[in-house]
Amino acid sequence: MHIVVCIKQVPDTKNVRIDPDTHTLVRQGVESIINPFDLFAAEAALRLKDRHGAKITVITMGPPQAETALREVMARGVDEAVLLSDRAFAGSDTWATATALAAAVKKLNPVDLVICGKQAIDGDTAQVGPEMATFLDFPQAACVKSLDLADQHHLQITRQTDEGTEVWKLPLPALITVVKDVGEPRVPSIKHKLRAKKAAIPVWGAADLELAPEQVGLAGSFTQVVRVFSPPRRSDRILLEGDATQQAEQLYDLLKAAKVPGI
């Protein structure tokens, strides 16, 4: 079985903000981390490998420094990595990103399963996985909590929905996106760390994926950002005064006046 895991390097959101006074982006201390959900994607793949044996390839599309993220995942036991990096990829929306990733999966064929995170914490769209599945013509399942092979050709999964869970059976090849319930990501081992450090990671550009310049990056995108701004601050903040009992009374009155259901 060949599993492809898609990971993304994202800015650690807790450090990204726009200074409300100067309207400038506060750059200080913005580190890159692996999108947390993608570590769960890698863990899901590794658990399948532990149980049934598999080859796992991790891919990311990003700037040259995204290679660090690939090595970090390899240090947990992933076999191979490919970096999709090309100036032409700049400005990709989810459509263009999914186009490049799907082309990479085709180039890595045969692939039995693609695992993505539920969403990336920078864009938060949760669109890249399902869009890739469409381009690959794979069946898909989003928000998968647990998974295992039903037999050689099928995956059985449990997925989270808004009102509970569902159990689905998908024929392979398929694409799934995972949530944290698939299992806590393992820590890197010394053995795999050494291997990851030395591993050669091929870099593929648009031409390697047989994609024309107008299919990728900004040219291959449909959505355009026209404005970026800081969210308006909450203007309605009231700090209550007095002891706990007085504050409780005040809060009750405020919530009553705001017609909060249940009050």
Partner: peptide, 23 residues
């Protein structure tokens, strides 16, 4: 942008060849 919407609407957009803005 529910569990269902976030799951299949990207598949609609991708199949139609159009953009989609989430959330």
């Amino acid at each position: 942008a529910t569990a269902i919407g976030r799951s299949f609407i990207p598949r609609v957009a991708a199949g139609l060849g159009t953009g989609l803005t989430a959330d």
